[in-house]
Design a protein around this nucleic acid. Structure first.
Length: 874
RNA sequence: GCGCGGUUAGCUCAGUGGUAGAGCACUGCCUUGACACGGCAGGGGUCACAGGUUCGAACCCUGUAUCGCGCACCA
């Protein structure tokens, strides 16, 4: 390519290069490679998922790490895949089938047919997010794409179950679990989201049977469970009620069976709360269940699995939904004149993460896991075997492991890994939920059926029970040998318990090693108002729309520039505009370079005489590389982006290119300047490539830096260029001169006749540069202050003069100078005050004091110059 | 109740002891030989508040306020 388009057009280059990379097998990891391995496993997105900005952030970071690792000489494996996402996927497909009228309930289709249809759905739609990741530029090894229900992986999951069962860590138990009445399955504690709810605290009274006329007042938020009450509890230390323990009250509901309930004493009752009297419903509350256990209370389960009330709730309630039942119960109490008050109350209610409805605590028989390797997992992070970035998540992780509870791993679903347990008798298995599975039946835990007459447990495993093996069981032996433990994990802190902690335990249990070395936690992307982005709120833009508007590189770069380590990100499309603009700016600097002639891919600026600007540029490139490498070492991605932005836009475009514009017609400078540009552009392309893979590949080829993909070109090292501070003094002086002209409201397109009295010999070499930087009509260098009325501006390199006549009003210049003098005096005063303090001079480090002295001298020089300018004005 | 994080320019955010920064927005000028997705210049901040440590604090310590998150509790 000899000519570039005037503006960068991402659409025309992105698909081209992505296809080329795939064709070349660029992303494929070779386990036999002699290079050191670097590996990342993708946090597998739900197979139902579509790309969100969260995915964009997360996967851009992984791609950056992968691409940089390739450039630093590693054999890179970025292993992609998707998660079967049990509840989510089954919900989606069931909903679709109901909408299509194919079924009303999953029993209409039966297990096999529903599974077949979910698989169909998965084959058809499950690849959407993968396609979207490709649009983003992700360099995953697609030949190794895995799915959590792939045959081999699924078998591993079952093997692990059998193994943990044989080790005695998996057991079946009848316990209070979190039950989702919509998904009709048990959930783990982590899948329950405590959510503040505005509700009411109802007070009602019950009469003590042994003491007619004496009433106990009970406070509850759930009057609809009164029918399941089997006791009333008070604290035995509560002087108000202790004497009533052992007596009885009459339960008001259901009306047709007003059973008498014992008044019991239990220390769990907080007598500060409500009235200090607690109704005990062992079937529908975890704490009540425990009280019931202690006091041998009967359990009356008044709810069906879908949280409608059953026959035990009485004729007035049967069939009602729990919330309708609540109203009904309150109404009944009111009619019986037992309702004392209902007052507004805010409490936390556990919601089902997936279905978004309040969960029910429900007694049921489920499979539980006593976690393996908890101590080792804690130590792995405590002792630095695994490092968290930012570090503060280590405390959260540690705290969770310290208080870890057994994991309810069975789900009453069909989509997932079926529990490899077989029962020797067929009865009692009609429904997936009932808790009626006999404990005495013969049980076999194995993957294959033990034979005729054995029936497999109908439940499947929690999705995370398969995800926790993702780091190692997605790899074959050769791959694992080369790439496990993985190098880094990039994920959100919201799944630190769901996934990260469990993977560490599984890794330690099944490989004897930690599954990864570094864990980088991204921030959460929020909208401008600070709200979490979600589909339901409609505040989440479609990343593909953004890519269409600004290009994948613009999205990546813009997002990464505002993604500080571990802080949530307030998303603003303007940031992506800036990413796009940056790409375009860089594109045009390359375009400008091509206009000056052919690029030398092997340019070596050290072989040429270099201008101070070229020397300065090389030194700043070195500093930028150092800054970038340091930022990578701490996963400070926004710092890397900012360093690139500062260098490319500020140092390279605004300063170097502008100063160099006079070099191309100057035989003494042309070659050196071109060599410096080529050298720098080459390295900027490399440094930028992880963030903006498409445009850098396009320009790498467009400028002729190589035939192969840029992603395998070696990462640049800082070259040890000596700093050249002269360039900066020129730029500061130029700014001062431009400010001078701006003060007089001269139109930018009016070229002026500048006069300059240099204060150092070397400045005389920079006449052409000053000319072009000031966009001057003429740039005359003089030895002495010129005659006549002049506006002037003293700088570090000399004094700029503008003839006043016809250009500048002397009065304006006088006012301006007076203002300047005032400012400088204030600065001098500030420095003097500091230097006048003995304690400062005595205690501050010598170099700081010296720096202040220098600053004072500089300001004083400037003051003198300004004064003489004022005097010369007349 | 416990823990974590935030509070810096109108907005979004950098900045871990030595002259308060960037981008956007704003004002003025400009289609200057890459770029108007651009250039040049400018205005704008008692760094949430109160104490303390220090010669010196946006930065370190203590406390307060406020916003957000997590854990526990939640009759």
């Amino acid at each position: 390519m000899s000519e570039l388009a005037k503006a960068y057009e991402p659409q025309s280059v992105e698909d081209k290069w992505y296809a080329w990379w795939l064709e070349q097998g660029c992303f494929h990891a070779d386990p036999a490679s002699p290079k050191p391995g670097y590996s990342i496993v993708i946090p597998p997105p739900n197979v139902t998922g579509v790309l969100t900005l969260g995915h964009v952030l997360n996967n851009t970071i992984q791609d950056i790490l992968a691409r940089r690792a390739r450039m630093t000489g590693h054999e890179v494996l970025w292993l992609p895949g998707t998660d079967h996402a049990g509840i989510a996927t089954q919900n989606v497909v069931e909903k679709m089938l109901r909408k299509e009228g194919v079924m009303k309930h999953r029993d209409d289709l039966g297990r096999e047919e529903l599974l077949r249809r979910i698989w169909d759905w998965k084959e058809k739609y499950g690849g959407i997010i993968i396609t979207q990741l490709k649009k983003l530029g992700c360099s995953c090894d697609w030949e190794r794409e895995r799915f959590t229900m792939d045959e081999g992986y699924a078998r591993k999951v079952q093997e692990v179950f059998v193994d943990l069962y044989n080790k005695g860590l998996i057991y079946r138990g009848k316990r209070m679990v979190n039950w989702c009445p919509v998904s009709l399955t048990a959930l783990s504690d982590e899948e329950v989201i405590p959510t503040p709810q505005k509700s009411y605290l109802y007070h009602f009274k019950v009469e003590v049977m042994e003491e007619p006329g004496t009433f106990l007042e009970i406070a509850t938020t759930r009057p609809e469970t009164i029918m399941g009450d089997t006791a009333v509890a008070v604290n035995p230390k509560d002087p108000r009620y202790a004497h009533l323990i052992g007596k009885h009250v009459r339960r008001p509901l259901p009306v047709e069976d007003q059973a008498s309930l014992p008044i019991i004493g239990d220390e769990a009752v907080d007598f500060e709360f409500g009235t200090g009297v607690l109704k005990v419903t062992p079937a529908h509350d975890k704490a009540d269940y425990e009280i019931g256990q202690r006091h041998n209370l009967p359990v009356i389960d008044i709810m069906n699995p879908d949280a409608t009330l059953n026959g035990l709730a009485g004729a007035d309630f049967v069939g009602l939904d729990r919330f309708e039942a609540r109203k009904e119960a309150v109404e009944k109490l009111r009619q019986m004149e037992l309702l004392v008050e209902e007052k507004p109350y805010e409490n936390n209610v556990g919601f089902s993460e997936r279905a978004g409805v309040p969960i029910e605590s429900r007694l049921s028989e489920q499979w539980f896991l006593k976690y393996p390797k908890t101590t080792e997992a804690r130590d792995a992070v405590r002792k630095g075997l695994i490092k968290f970035f930012p570090e503060r998540w280590e405390k959260v992780y540690d705290h969770w492991l310290e208080n870890i509870q057994d994991w309810c791993i069975s789900r009453q679903l069909w989509w997932g890994h079926r529990i490899p347990v077989w029962y020797g008798r067929e009865d009692g298995l009609s429904s997936s939920f009932n808790g009626a599975l006999g404990a005495t039946r013969p049980t076999a835990c194995q993957i294959e059926s033990p034979g005729e007459g054995w029936v497999q447990d109908p439940d499947v495993l929690d999705t995370w029970f398969s995800s926790w093996l993702w780091a190692h069981d997605t790899m074959d032996d050769a791959t694992r040998k080369k790439f496990y433990p993985t190098s880094a994990l990039v994920t959100g802190p919201d799944i630190i318990f769901f996934w990260v902690a469990r993977m560490i335990m599984a890794g330690l249990e099944y490989t004897g090693e930690v599954p990864f070395r570094d864990v980088y936690y991204t921030g959460i992307i929020r909208d401008k108002g600070g709200k979490k982005m979600s589909k339901s709120l409609g505040n989440s833009p479609d990343p593909l729309d953004i890519i269409a508007k600004y290009g994948a590189d613009g999205l990546r770069f813009g997002l990464m520039r505002i993604a500080p380590q571990g802080q949530d990100i307030k998303f603003d499309e303007q940031q992506i505009v800036e990413g796009r603009n940056f790409c375009n700016k860089f594109w045009n600097s390359c375009r400008f370079r091509l206009m000056q002639g052919e690029v030398d891919p092997n340019a070596d600026p050290t072989k040429h005489a270099l201008s101070i600007f070229a020397q300065d540029l090389l030194a700043k490139l070195d500093a930028t590389i150092t800054r970038i490498d340091a930022a990578y070492a701490e996963y400070r991605f926004s710092e890397v982006a900012q360093a690139l932005y500062d260098f490319v836009w500020g140092d390279f475009c605004d300063r170097f290119i502008e100063a160099a514009k006079s070099d191309f017609t100057n035989p003494a400078r042309r070659e050196g300047t071109l060599a410096a540009m080529d050298y720098v552009l080459n390295r900027v392309l490399l440094l930028l490539h992880p963030y903006a893979p498409f445009i850098t590949e396009e320009l790498w080829h467009g400028l002729g830096f190589g035939e192969g993909s840029i992603q395998y070109a070696p990462w640049p090292a800082a070259g040890g260029a000596a700093p050249e501070p002269k360039a900066d003094t020129i730029f500061r002086a130029v700014t001062a001169a431009r400010t001078l002209r701006a003060t007089f409201n001269l139109p930018s397109n009016k070229r002026l006749r500048w006069v300059f009295q240099p204060s150092a010999e070397w400045v005389k070499d920079e006449q052409a540069a000053l000319h072009v930087l000031l966009h001057a009509e003429t740039m005359e260098f003089v030895e002495a202050r010129p005659e006549g009325a002049m506006a002037s501006c003293p700088t570090e390199i000399g004094v700029f003069f503008l003839p006043l006549e016809g250009v500048v009003d002397p009065e304006t210049e006088g006012t301006r100078l007076a203002g300047e003098i005032g400012k400088v005096r204030a600065e001098i005063e500030k420095v003097q005050r500091k230097l006048g303090s003995d304690t400062f001079v005595q205690n501050a480090p010598a170099e700081v004091v010296a720096e202040h002295r220098q600053r004072q001298a500089d300001w004083e020089n400037r003051l003198e110059a300004l004064k003489s300018a004022r005097d010369a004005l007349g």
